[in-house]
Design a protein around this nucleic acid. Structure first.
Length: 443
RNA sequence: GCCGAUUUAGCUUAGCUGGUGGAGCGUGGGACUGUUAAUCCCAAGGUCGAGGGUUCGAACCCCUCAAUCGGCGCCA
């Protein structure tokens, strides 16, 4: 039972005048006791199938009447262009087989009212029924666009001869300074779920020179915002011999490629969820300006925001700063005191580090964080001491500097955040099939 | 960790100053040969989140708890 005919191709006119068999799910069914209109959906679209009692017989007609929403069926018939049908084509059925029926005592729970209430967002009910919500047109479009985003990232790096490289998800220590690690029992010991691929990537940097990954990262932050997940997909890269500017160019390059690929391959899906294509086109075509931290602070102070030099910029300040941006902006050269030890101190002015954040417009916040790494052994040891960090936990990391350290750097990109921003989603949960946050781990 | 809000049928909701809970969708039955979220008629479906209190009487007022949602901090 290999399916070869898809509704999208039927609606494109590839099968006009031919008798074909379609396989799919009932999206809606209406009609009288002599004629029924079954709207069939598959992964590529929907088509109206006209089922006449005269043509298929009493028994089959009764079966069709009983095929509730989301019943799976195989339906055979003639394909015609017809103005009366949504999409411009319809099937006039000659036979129908119910493959998987739906029990009327437990009808498909995702109703029009449930969708309408969510209004593109999500309700508790839809989150509880996520496994069924996935098959709605909105979630289908989101998942298809998500796939395009992942593909764009792979293609960007592979086209530049980066090597895809995997790090362990069980780790012994933290990457970030914070205490946002998930603890996992491990044969009588405690280990943690990784927050980042970075430290292990730096270990492989002298071997591979240009490397990247797309992998889940885990953060035990009790954040309740539309930008946070506890399990998120992290696209990270590391490059030997690279400067902060070069790394930023890759960040800009990959994000613009993602926007471009979405525009090229998923414009139908973007429009179906109400996204303005001109915005996405601007993100694909425009250069992303670079602004130093000091300039951002001055700008904010000029706007009357209460902020002092040396503070990291939290979301409330990012939001004020980015509200007038029409494309993503890089923020560079943060104060050393605001960033962890692995950021390289600016040799020209040692109160800064050579790092960058990429801030998305429209209130979506930080989508990339990266920069040059502290690469000389002496500097790394000094920075760890300054922070009072226990060096024992980072011995393998220090070792990578002890044998031919070189300047290098990289960044981490929040893939779900990028999906959320580029699709214009109301919440990051909308772009991942089974979102995990501090309150929800099921379904 | 902090702040705010919500909880009534499978779903979405109305419910006034406390006086025996209404509707739409969905489901079941009926009518209808071109419907577009089809339409029309009928029916079933509710210990009003849980527990306690006030009261002659509580979905409504008070207390405790729970679940969920939104926001902040932190970050991608």
């Amino acid at each position: 039972m290999v399916k070869t005919i898809f509704i999208g191709d039927v609606q494109a006119g590839k099968y006009d005048g031919q008798e074909v068999e379609l396989m799919g799910w009932v999206k809606r069914s209406r009609g009288s006791n002599k004629i029924r209109f079954v709207v069939l959906r598959d992964s590529t679209g929907v088509i109206q199938c006209v089922v006449k009692k005269d043509a298929i017989g009493d028994e089959s007609f009764e079966q069709v009447k009983g095929a509730l929403i989301e019943s799976s069926i195989k339906i055979t018939g003639m394909i015609n262009a017809d103005e009366r049908a949504d999409g411009g084509h319809e099937m006039v059925a000659t036979s129908i087989v119910i493959v998987g029926s739906v029990n009327p005592e437990h009808p498909f729970p995702i109703t029009e009212s449930a969708m309408k209430a969510a209004d593109g967002g999500e309700t508790e009910f839809l989150l509880d029924n996520r496994h069924l919500y996935l098959r709605t047109s909105r979630m289908t479009a989101m998942l298809q666009m998500r796939s395009t985003v992942f593909g764009a990232i792979h293609n960007y790096f592979r086209d530049l001869d980066f090597t895809e490289y995997q790090a362990p998800n069980f780790v012994a220590g933290a990457v970030e300074g914070g205490s946002t690690l998930f603890e996992v029992p491990y044969f009588g010991k405690k280990v943690y779920l990784t927050q980042s691929w970075q430290l292990y990537a730096e270990a492989a940097m002298p071997a591979l020179e240009r490397l990247y990954t797309i992998a889940p990262s885990f953060r035990a932050e009790k954040s309740r915002t539309r930008r946070h997940l506890t399990e998120f997909w992290h696209a990270e890269m590391e490059v030997a011999w690279a400067t902060n500017d070069e790394i930023m160019s890759h960040g800009e390059g990959v994000v613009r490629k993602i926007a471009g690929d979405l525009l090229e391959n998923r414009s139908t899906e973007l429009e179906s969820i109400g996204r303005d294509l001109e915005l996405v086109a601007r993100y694909a075509d425009s250069p992303y300006p670079r602004m130093r931290y000091d300039e951002a602070i001055e700008t904010l102070q000029g706007m009357g925001v209460d902020v002092e030099w040396g503070q990291d910029l939290d979301y409330s300040k990012e939001k004020v700063l980015t509200q007038d941006f029409d494309v993503p902006h890089f923020l560079t050269h943060y104060p050393k005191i605001a960033k962890p030890f692995y950021h390289r101190v600016d040799p020209d002015e040692d109160k800064y580090v050579l790092c960058h954040d990429l801030l998305a417009p429209e209130g979506y916040g930080e989508i990339i964080g990266g920069g040059e790494r502290t690469w000389s052994e002496a500097e790394l040891l000094a920075r760890l001491d300054e922070e009072g960090t226990d060096k024992a936990a980072y011995q393998f990391y220090i070792d990578t500097r002890s044998y031919g350290g070189v300047p290098h750097g990289g960044f981490g990109l929040g893939v779900d955040r990028v999906c959320s921003w580029l699709t214009g989603a109301d919440h990051i949960r909308e772009v991942i099939p089974f979102p995990r946050d501090s309150r929800r781990v099921s379904p």
